[in-house]
């Protein structure tokens, strides 16, 4: 989950400033987000994707301010 483009990300901005202070001059932007690992017992990939999408919409992401992306691995 990451803040949508256009939503101010003060933490990302602070991290970018810190990276600049360390000399990483090529950094032009940082977006901070969250990474979750979920263990599921769904039978197949399609069902797992459906489950995860529903979880993201209802709880894991606040779609007013955040985008989310996910990948189902076996």
């Amino acid at each position: 989950m990451t803040l949508k483009q256009g939503v101010l990300d003060p933490q990302g901005k602070a991290i970018a400033n810190a990276l600049h202070a360390l000399g990483f001059d090529s950094v032009v932007g940082v977006r901070q987000g969250k990474f979750l690992e979920l263990d599921l017992k769904d039978d197949d990939k399609a069902s797992a994707e459906k489950t995860v999408r529903s979880m993201c919409e209802r709880l894991l992401a606040n779609t007013v301010i955040e985008d989310y992306a996910f990948e189902v691995l076996k």
Partner: peptide, 16 residues
């Protein structure tokens, strides 16, 4: 806001 009873969201303070 999280429950959808009011619009918008409250995020981290600009000054952190």
């Amino acid at each position: 806001t999280e429950a959808g009873l009011l619009p918008g969201a409250l995020v981290r303070n600009a000054g952190l």
